[in-house]
Every structure is written in structure tokens, then in C-alpha cells.
Amino acid sequence: MSDLGGKSVIVTGAASGIGRATAAAFVAAGAKVIACDRADVSVDGATPMRIDAGDEADVAASVERACADHGGLDIFFANAGISGGYVGGIFDVDAAAWAEVLRVNLIGPALAIKHAAPRIAERGGGAIICTASVAGLRSGAGPAPYSASKAGVINLVQVAAQQLAGTGVRVNAVLPGLIETGMTQPIYDDARARGSEAAIGKLNPLRRGGEAEEIAAAVLFLASGAASYVNGAALPVDGGLSSSHPTSGRFTVGALRP
């Protein structure tokens, strides 16, 4: 992604997982990165900034910091998110838990678009990428509040792409499948404790879990000129999981069955 050199970039949720891997990838591509999180951020070559991605004043401050430090803003990766816990039945979650998941996972990206888009447009255009999830496509991949919030992100980028028509600002979502991060660590830890780690990711055609760096590569693509005609899109990066409903068998010719 050679055209990312010198670009001014904000990454939220950059203390770990997908955010950290993506901030590092932007730095490696020559971008000038503000790496934001509520926790301490340590990404070589990036400027750390403590923010709450669901707080409007904090999001606005991150945009102003990028403009002050780097002369403007070209790319915003609205990645910060929370699971809300893995007790996800609709009848198991109270209103406060719903509100917090939606505040961070859905309102956070909306605030990123609100504050970043005008400054990106001032530079002649650029990209906003929001982290959604395959859990936002259909049930069965996450707790109820998390899944609903990510479905909202998918719709949000479509709405934003339309409302930013003519500005040169592209808005897209990346939809990770199962990736080992701090958020999903309980799933991996439980599988390892039960001796079933080998089963992780077996529902997707690649039959493995993903790596944070694989999501970072997709984000850099969406941020780059290589994706100059991609707008309002939701890109699954999930090993093929969302290409079908999970089944216990494979509808393949017997001779080709693995």
C-alpha cells in the first residue's frame, strides 16, 4: 500500500488485538498514526493518545490532535469495541449493559464519522473504516448486544457513504470472523482448557481462526488507493464463514469430500 506514506491516520482500540496490529501496519506503510485507546498504547512509531471512543469530546479531540500534529486527517479506523460479556441471551442482559455496548460499538463509529469526515474532506477525500463483525450479518456468532451493535455498524457505513456523496470520503466496514484478541481470549482459553483448541475455526472453509494481521491487511486495502472505488461496503474477513450457514456436513461430491 505504497500510497499510504505520509498519510495522517487515527486508529482507535489500538492497545491490543486488531487495533494494535493495524496501527503497526500503518506505521510500516509510512503513515503518521495517532493510536488511541482507553488503555496504554505502545506501537513503535505511533503517537499514543488516551481516549474513550464512545465519548464525543474525546473523539473530537483525537481528530484535532491529528490535524494539529500532522496538518490534517486522511484516514480514520474506528475499531474500538467491547463484547459486553459472553452471556448474550436477550433475556440475560439488562438495559445498562445494552446501552454500554451500543455506546462504544455503534455510537463510537458514528462519532468518528461525524468528526473525521469534514476534516478528511478538507484534504480532498480519504477513508473511514469501521470494525463491524460477521456477528452483524446473522445470529449465532456473538452475544445479542454485540451482534446488534455490529449490524448497526454495517448499516451505518451505508448511510454515511450516501450522506457523504461528492466529498471524496469513502466509508466502509471490515467484518472479522473469529480472531484471537483480548476480546475473544475467553473463547480461546475455554477451548484450550477443554482440550478442543483444534476445533477453533472449523466452521469456516479455511478451518482455522484468523490473525489480527490478516484484518489489518484488509483495513489497509480499504484505506488505500487500491480501494478507490469501494464505498459503503461491508467486507467479511472470516475464512469464508459468512458465505454459508454452518452445517454439520459438506454438500460435496463424495470423491471430493475431505
Results as ranks from 00 to 15, higher is better:
residue 254 G to K: 13
residue 202 K to D: 11
residue 41 V to A: 10
residue 35 A to Y: 02
residue 173 A to H: 09
residue 210 G to P: 11
residue 118 P to M: 07
residue 96 A to W: 05
residue 243 S to G: 14
residue 31 A to C: 10
residue 237 V to L: 12
residue 36 C to G: 15
residue 183 M to A: 06
residue 8 S to D: 13
residue 164 L to I: 06
residue 63 V to H: 06
residue 123 R to A: 04
residue 121 A to G: 00
residue 212 A to T: 03
residue 82 I to M: 01
residue 43 V to E: 06
residue 53 A to D: 06
residue 124 G to S: 02
residue 79 N to F: 08
residue 190 D to E: 13
residue 114 K to M: 03
residue 235 L to Y: 13
residue 29 A to Y: 06
residue 233 A to P: 02
residue 234 A to V: 02
residue 227 A to P: 01
residue 174 V to C: 00
residue 218 A to W: 00
residue 110 A to K: 08
residue 225 G to L: 12
residue 222 L to R: 03
residue 211 E to R: 15
residue 135 A to F: 06
residue 51 I to G: 03
residue 58 D to Q: 12
residue 123 R to V: 02
residue 47 T to F: 13
residue 199 A to K: 12
residue 249 G to K: 12
residue 96 A to Q: 14
residue 219 V to L: 12
residue 207 R to C: 05
residue 240 G to E: 07
residue 64 E to T: 14
residue 190 D to A: 15
residue 253 V to R: 15
residue 59 V to K: 10
residue 169 V to F: 02
residue 136 G to E: 07
residue 139 S to Y: 09
residue 243 S to C: 14
residue 141 A to D: 08
residue 251 F to C: 13
residue 186 P to N: 01
residue 175 L to Q: 13
residue 121 A to P: 00
residue 212 A to V: 02
residue 211 E to K: 15
residue 85 G to I: 08
residue 145 P to G: 13
residue 12 T to K: 11
residue 11 V to W: 01
residue 32 K to C: 08
residue 110 A to W: 10
residue 236 P to K: 03
residue 242 S to W: 11
residue 206 L to P: 11
residue 206 L to F: 14
residue 153 V to P: 07
residue 59 V to W: 09
residue 199 A to S: 06
residue 179 I to Q: 10
residue 183 M to T: 04
residue 252 T to F: 15
residue 63 V to T: 12
residue 118 P to S: 07
residue 95 A to H: 10
residue 222 L to D: 01
residue 52 D to F: 06
residue 247 T to I: 08
residue 258 P to L: 07
residue 170 R to M: 01
residue 190 D to Q: 15
residue 60 A to F: 04
residue 240 G to S: 09
residue 101 V to H: 04
residue 237 V to T: 13
residue 100 E to M: 13
residue 159 V to A: 11
residue 223 A to K: 02
residue 18 I to L: 05
residue 10 I to F: 04
residue 76 F to R: 05
residue 251 F to D: 15
residue 127 A to H: 00
residue 172 N to R: 01
residue 84 G to Y: 04
residue 64 E to M: 11
residue 85 G to N: 11
residue 46 A to D: 03
residue 112 A to G: 14
residue 32 K to A: 11
residue 239 G to V: 08
residue 45 G to L: 05
residue 52 D to R: 04
residue 208 R to I: 05
residue 125 G to F: 00
residue 131 T to R: 01
residue 230 V to W: 00
residue 187 I to C: 10
residue 69 D to F: 04
residue 226 A to E: 07
residue 244 S to W: 10
residue 218 A to C: 06
residue 80 A to G: 10
residue 168 G to P: 02
residue 240 G to D: 09
residue 160 A to M: 07
residue 126 G to D: 00
residue 105 N to A: 09
residue 74 D to Y: 07
residue 17 G to V: 02
residue 171 V to A: 06
residue 238 D to K: 10
residue 181 T to W: 01
residue 126 G to N: 00
residue 145 P to A: 10
residue 96 A to V: 12
residue 179 I to Y: 09
residue 230 V to I: 03
residue 88 G to C: 08
residue 153 V to L: 10
